[in-house]
Write a protein that binds this DNA or RNA. Structure first.
Length: 436
RNA sequence: UCCCCGAUAGCUCAAUGGUAGAGCAUGCGGCUGUUAACCGCAGGGUUGUAGGUUCGAGUCCUACUCGGGGAGCCA
């Protein structure tokens, strides 16, 4: 009877067959200890010389790391096995050999591990991390679904730049000229919002930026909710509830993986609404007050965007994710609603994760007035004719609306507590790196 | 695009300008409870590329290539 490592408990005392890969082998004279992983967990399988034929015992002692195996034996409770149950082996069959597996038990360099990413994902820490990623994605979608949001998929191939100036990957689209890989689904999701009230899109987005930092990928996944009749305040409330719910679910269901990654879960327990909020104006003041703590950076002047060192410092002054609201309109996207009493700032917010993980969510109230939106498109040097359909959304039953986008990888990096974003996606795409 | 650091065995790293080393991995041998097990033996190298300085260069100098860290931009 086949079993999985995670479900061994009910089989205690009985004989089962596990199928998986050899994580590690330790031999001690007349005993071999096989660590078998099957994706659900890792189980220590013990081969005693007296329990099996000499041929099987010899085979067990020569197994290669990561060979695939079927192992049959009796399930026994034993604290010395990682999952609390071990298998006393009676039979064993190699399914696929694994000579010279490159990733060994000692340390490796980043470049080597990324070149072997297709194998690296089998390793313990990577396995825990990617499980957390899957949980973040599932939690995000299921929370939104439960709140009445409808998933509304947006195109990846797009005819023009959604936000203008940033670098896009381009390809040729038959004889219709260039097409671009989407850097956001936001404009399209606004069309969906007017059909369904509350929608979100979820998929890969692409930025051809020459960014070489621990927070950047050229291909990353983003979940972008958009809500009709929601203003800036409502937008922030949804964001803090959403992110808190995602964190709570990871704590509930993937605590073991967080511990595998040595994540301080107490810091995650604090992630509950409301989140602290400061305006951009206040952020500038704070940065000037703490200027001496800024290494290799000056406090920004009003009108300049916040840099990575600034975001790190601001987030360190708070023990929860931090909203920075009302950035100067001039440094934000063209579609953001100006604050009525101060049109030089936008009704927007960046949500900064603690510990220097940077902006995990960016959002805003959108301009709902057709004339203002058209003016902004022109002011940003964009072609109005490219945005005909987008302007239509304001011509046919416009409403106040808001939305935001969360970068999955940044959220996962912060929640899991891993330093570099490249490990939070199975196959990272970075500047100068596209293999495997 | 800019700044800093690096490149030596399959992998991770040592080596005052003076004979190229270790751990892991691999192969062989030993050990009845190991937790990246341990112990013994063995094989494994055009020191990133091209020039230069020197009696002598892994080590110093120049250029290039590749990689790592950071910045800008952004999620």
């Amino acid at each position: 009877m086949f079993a999985t490592v995670a479900q061994l408990g009910p089989h205690a005392g009985r004989e089962v067959t596990l199928r998986g890969w050899l994580y590690n082998l330790r031999s001690k004279g007349r005993i071999h200890f096989l660590l078998l992983r099957d994706g659900t967990g890792t189980c220590q399988c013990v081969v005693f010389a007296g329990d099996v034929t000499p041929e099987v015992f010899d085979t067990a002692g020569r197994l290669d790391q990561e060979c695939s195996l079927e192992v049959t034996g009796q399930v026994r409770e034993d604290a010395r096995s990682p999952g609390g149950f071990e298998l006393q082996v009676t039979a064993l069959q190699v399914l696929g050999a694994s000579a010279d597996y490159p990733i060994t038990k000692k340390e490796h360099g980043t470049d080597f591990l990324l070149r072997n990413r297709h194998l690296w994902v089998r390793s313990r820490l990577q396995h825990a991390l990617l499980r957390i990623r899957a949980e973040v994605i599932a939690a995000s979608q299921e929370w939104l679904n439960a709140q009445g949001f409808v998933r509304f998929d947006t195109p990846i191939l797009t005819p023009c730049s959604a936000e203008g100036t940033t670098n896009l990957f381009s390809t040729s689209y038959f004889d219709l000229g260039p097409a671009y890989l989407a850097q956001t689904g936001q404009l399209y999701v606004e069309a969906g919002m007017m059909a369904f009230g509350k929608v979100y899109c979820f998929g890969p987005t692409f930025r051809a930026e020459k960014s070489k930092t621990r927070r950047h990928l050229t291909e990353f996944w983003m979940i972008e909710p958009e809500m009709a009749f929601a203003d800036h305040e409502e937008n922030l409330r949804v964001q803090e509830s959403f992110l808190s719910a995602v964190v709570a679910r990871v704590l509930d269901r993937r605590k073991e993986d967080l511990l595998t990654l040595s994540r301080d879960t107490a810091a995650l327990e604090r992630v509950t609404p409301p989140f602290p909020r400061i305006t951009y104006d206040r952020a500038i003041e704070l940065l000037n007050e703490h200027a001496t703590e800024l290494t290799d950076a000056m406090p920004p002047r009003w009108g300049e965007d916040l840099g990575a060192p600034h975001e790190v410092l601001l987030s360190r002054l708070h023990d929860k994710p931090l909203f920075v609201t009302h950035y100067p309109a001039a440094i934000k996207a063209f579609y953001m609603q100006p604050e009525p009493s101060r049109p030089e700032v936008a009704r927007c917010a960046d949500l900064l994760a603690p510990d220097g993980y940077g902006e995990v969510i960016g959002g805003s109230e959108r301009i709902h007035d057709a004339d203002l939106l058209e003016r902004r498109i022109r002011e940003h040097g964009l072609r109005v004719e490219d945005y005909g359909w987008y302007l239509d959304l304001r011509r046919y039953g416009t409403v106040i609306h808001s939305g935001f986008g969360m970068g999955i990888e940044r959220a996962v990096a912060w929640i899991a507590g891993v330093h570099h974003i490249r490990e939070t996606i199975p196959f990272p795409r970075m500047l100068d790196k596209i293999y495997p």
